[in-house]
Write a protein that binds this DNA or RNA. Structure first.
Lengths: 143, 143
DNA sequence: GTGTTTGCAAACACTTTGCATCCAA
DNA sequence: TTGGATGCAAAGTGTTTGCAAACAC
């Protein structure tokens, strides 16, 4: 799947008249092989451990491409930052976040999704996307 | 209600060994008489139109007190900023946001709220709060 | 070749903090 | 009187941008 995701990115690049550079390649590969939710800075560190001279601006610019292409998604941390995660081949989900240890669990609830559509319809809105964050205390932290 | 909200703030201040200063008074009053969702900067402007020499740090510090006391709540704008709104005497709600005109509609759905609790329980989380933003195109913008 | 991409550093937007002074209780 | 509060300016944080040099196609 990682391979097809990379191909997907290459297609996206070509379709938009952009170039596939070594920097973009290493960033995308590192992104794809990194599981979970991570910051731009963390991705930058991972990339630099392979290719030391990649600038942070390139990380941000490439993450933007990953978002636009649909390969990546973000979680807003609430304090002005963002975390990134894989979106390609992953179904939509929301997050349940432990306010103590910051653990993030992916959740999905059909009833909620359906009601979101319904609520939007009640207001004549065309729903394009949504974000839902549930904050609480996880079992490990409440013991 | 505005009056009781102000009294509520005064109680909060006293209970925490803090002082009620003229700056805090004018900021809280201005906050309470301003409806809708507004930025710290906008509140600062409104306050300065009455008392010109209130510093922005005092705005932020007082907004923090308003959040802690439960009088205010925030909406994260997603680009690192925040908007503030009244929370005192207002039931919990979420937001439906037009991605074109930025209009924000307050929404509440019991089914969603119930399912959120249910989902948290499934993962043995004690839910403390949540945020849900629905993004779409409002009827005025889709015409 | 030529338009895109890069790294760097500076700029950004929003918020927080250090500090000397000031003030409420 | 004295611990908290203020205004100012500087610092911080995460992200974006201007630019000249470098590169992909």
């Amino acid at each position: 799947m990682t391979q097809s995701a990379e191909n997907y990115f290459i297609s996206y690049i070509k379709e938009n008249g952009l170039s596939m550079t070594p920097q973009r390649k290493i960033i995308v590969e590192t992104f794809l092989e990194t599981e979970g939710h991570f910051s731009a800075e963390h991705l930058h560190d991972l990339v630099r451990s392979k290719v030391p001279d990649v600038g942070q601006a390139t990380i941000y610019r490439t993450l933007k491409l990953l978002l636009d292409s649909g390969l990546a998604d973000t979680i807003e941390t609430g304090d002005g930052g963002a975390l990134y995660e894989h979106a390609y081949g992953h179904d939509h989900h929301d997050h349940l976040i432990c306010v103590h240890c910051n653990r993030k669990i992916e959740i999905f609830d059909e009833t909620i999704e359906a009601r979101q559509e319904e609520v939007a319809k009640q207001h004549d809105f065309k729903l394009t996307r949504h974000r839902m964050y549930l904050y609480g205390i996880c079992p490990d932290c409440s013991g």
